[in-house]
Amino acid sequence: MEWVDFFLQQLITGLSNGMIIALIASGYTMVYGIIELINFAHGDLFMLGAFLALTVLGALGLGDWSGASAWAAVVIMLMASAGFCGVLNWGVDRLAYKPLRNASKLSLLVSAIGASFILVNLGLFWGGVPMDVFAGGVAAAAPKDFPALVPNTNLLGEESLVQFTPKDVLVWAVTVPLMVGLTWIVTRTRLGKAMRATAQNPVAARLMGIDTDRVIGATFLIGGALGGFASVIYSLYNNTISFQMGYRAGMDAFTAAVLGGIGSMPGAVTGALVIGLVRSMSDAYLETRWTNTIVFGILVLILIFRPSGLLGSRAKEKV
């Protein structure tokens, strides 16, 4: 039954792609939830995370990665990129957003756009670093190959038409625990409580003794770290990075966050999985060139019928 195989294959591919989007989307939705900012720089932050991961890999030495050493390298990259993106996101907030806390939402948005441009430019420079992993840095703007640390062997057996590889396993194994952990932080910890309070009403939260600046800082830190994790997973799954990759990744993730209901963590995951699956199915059964149109068409339709997204609550409008 070849068509069954084909369909199963698209499910696997779609879900894996969706999971990666979900990690990025949760970073968007956290920041949006707390300061109502569409953080345009988030996709580009994610891009820099991938460049850091490749640099770390280069520093570890490019060898024949296999078995335990490859997995060790993966863990090191995950930690490094998460830490780097977390701190960077926190820094961007300090420099570009914090001074505008009392300004209009749209000034904040423009500041985020500015930050996005700067990060893209840093990515371009980074590609010019004279390291072997960047091909000597000669063609800074060119896409970079990301070594295939995770093998592409078929876990269902080499003769199976359906491919399910360690790459897919990695995506799931990193994303699911992170999402669970994040939900736990937001719903069960003191920090999470402070975050939700700040999101609802920053002034009241401050009056209650919550250091809202620290809470917002922590949100950026966690959101950035998620972007860092996502960047490593993305790089290991797709094996190419480029300084312009933040645009599409960011747009998909932002769309996912809104589709699910912005500010809602389960919503971001749902939205991301929907987008991943729709992209796969459209590429496979329709025409690739119409995929983007279909994704955004579905988004518009869903929002027309559910104006607060799939899992967004209607009554949350602030007055």
Binding site: L95, A103, S111, G114, N121
Partner: peptide
């Protein structure tokens, strides 16, 4: 160019 443009945006709204 990107960098200069981005910095200018941030400075103006700041």
């Amino acid at each position: 160019k990107y960098l200069i443009f981005g910095l200018a945006l941030i400075l103006v709204v700041r």
